[in-house]
Design a protein around this nucleic acid. Sequence first.
DNA 1: GATGTTTATGCGATCGATTGCACGTTGTCA
DNA 2: TGACAACGTGCAATCGATCGCATAAACATC
Lengths: 337, 337
Amino acid sequence: MRGATLQSIATAAGVHRSTAARALDPGQSHRISPEVVERVRAEAQRQGYRRDAIAASLRTGRSRLVGVVVPDLANPVFAPILDGIGAQLSSEGYSMLVADGGPDAAAQAAIVEELIARRVDGLVLATATRDDPVLTICLNAGVPTVLVNRREDELRASSIVTDDLAGMFLAVEHLIELGHHRIGHLAGPVDFSTGVLRRKGFEDAMRTAGLAADAVVVTTEYSRPAGRSATASLLDRWPDVTAIAASNDLLALGAIQELKVRGLSCPADLSIVGHNDMPLMDMVAPPLTTVQIGLAEMGEQAARHLLDHISGSSLKPAVLQVRPQFVLRDSTAMASK
Amino acid sequence: MRGATLQSIATAAGVHRSTAARALDPGQSHRISPEVVERVRAEAQRQGYRRDAIAASLRTGRSRLVGVVVPDLANPVFAPILDGIGAQLSSEGYSMLVADGGPDAAAQAAIVEELIARRVDGLVLATATRDDPVLTICLNAGVPTVLVNRREDELRASSIVTDDLAGMFLAVEHLIELGHHRIGHLAGPVDFSTGVLRRKGFEDAMRTAGLAADAVVVTTEYSRPAGRSATASLLDRWPDVTAIAASNDLLALGAIQELKVRGLSCPADLSIVGHNDMPLMDMVAPPLTTVQIGLAEMGEQAARHLLDHISGSSLKPAVLQVRPQFVLRDSTAMASK
DNA sequence: GATGTTTATGCGATCGATTGCACGTTGTCA
DNA sequence: TGACAACGTGCAATCGATCGCATAAACATC
């Protein structure tokens, strides 16, 4: 049954293929007489016709396809983001081309080139660094692009992010309220906006409270192993910290693992706050106190915003901030001393 | 710079566009004189030419696009599967069109129709029921399709699954070795192959050990709430069970939650075994003893197999089983009585 | 009834890459 | 030297839907 074409149903219905096209297009069918519309529809139904999106794209120049690039598909943090993007896109008749760009820019660039060759109408990058060469490619190619979760320093493209400063502020305030005053920070990579902004949030919050913000270890990736080794450095260097604010849940999980290895327990010996509230963070041991950044919502908004960019001519790049929310669970406790 | 076309570089290089096409195709360039090839390549480079995949697809009928349908993108179990599929596909120059079909067949059918209209070269369904109407659509459309994680009863399409019987056997054997003889089972939905096969695995293992396999509660979806309420029913009806073999990790997590609510603890009061070994199952409380089913590997194999189907003429449908592996963690303990 | 307007439909170019066929040139062999 | 093969390129049809323009018929207006 491969091959019911517009031509074939037009012939069968005794009309020209352009007439058939109009009859089947809900936006145009009113220009065609009802009986012809009915005849064409019936014939299309009978032959099981489906419009060939490829051919349509070639002619119109639009593919109704959006490319989404993530740095690591296996990381559970992206599932809700993709979910949000996908939901929003499909409600508008768009589909999502998901690609794992990996951690390095060269591979990401190749992937993006591939997506552009496939004539995507727009791109969502969850991979952005603070000065992202991949974004340059997208912009040069004239493809509407939005960033999600991370942003650039410059405002070259719209970004949908959480308020990283405010989020980390919430986390640190909580620890301070619990009586901690020697607090360490596991900072994210310096080339990610989340890394530096959350670190700044940490420092601001500490200073505001009149506390020293020196116990900081910078990681080079958001992962559990990175969290473990960073925590090891932190504890070796500042053995007196009683709490850790991590800039990411995976780092926090790594920290918890390191504590366990050292025979320390969380939260009895050290309090730990994560960031992002990834799926399952309520079930880990101990259930992680963290900052929820609205992953699915960011995805939705990114998609919606991208669609606006695609249709609405030239919107100014903007930064949309989703409000972070503190989530109290069991990985934090009163300072004992 | 939008619009370096084959024609434009051909003109600039002083050749016909068909010659340019051949010069740029590694498989054809040997038929063209080296100097022309060089000239065309240089010009293509200079103009930043990218072949328009859409136009090529229209002509050739192949899109190098594979549709992947999952029932719930937000479920972390699919992240590794998508990762495996994506890795394999991109290594062969294919891209992945990911769609969330939702739980019901009608919506899935609509999504699949959409994917077919986009002329995907093949489809991976992670949504299959034991007699799947959506697969019928794919087959009727003549689109190569493989099932991943779940299979049909009939062998209409190739499936890449784990050995569900064997996997559950491992789980139950483990519990029995720990001295449990009153073991309950949280069965998956009856219309999923995983639901019935794992249940059968449970029953077989119990009977093999001469134990009664009557303490079974059937769920209607794989989710934590479903696990909680199923566990509630199970404990109400068979208060003497000392262990539960769940047919899915999320069900197991739900069970743990229900225990907690009842003031029981895992594994002290009840042992629980999950299934799938989703991401983070090593970090939940307690770290979940489960059966690892090779999610990423299934994804990879599914993609590889699909590509074979796409290129290699007509392979017979087959069931490929990835071997499950028992993972011992802390949610199981010796039976106390 | 002549002119203007609306309505329904047909016509054909177009998007850009691919590919079977044809043509001219050069080289080979008897 | 004539017949034929091999090679490098050009030519033009093709994939299927879309859409501006043309046209014919129907209808309205004075």
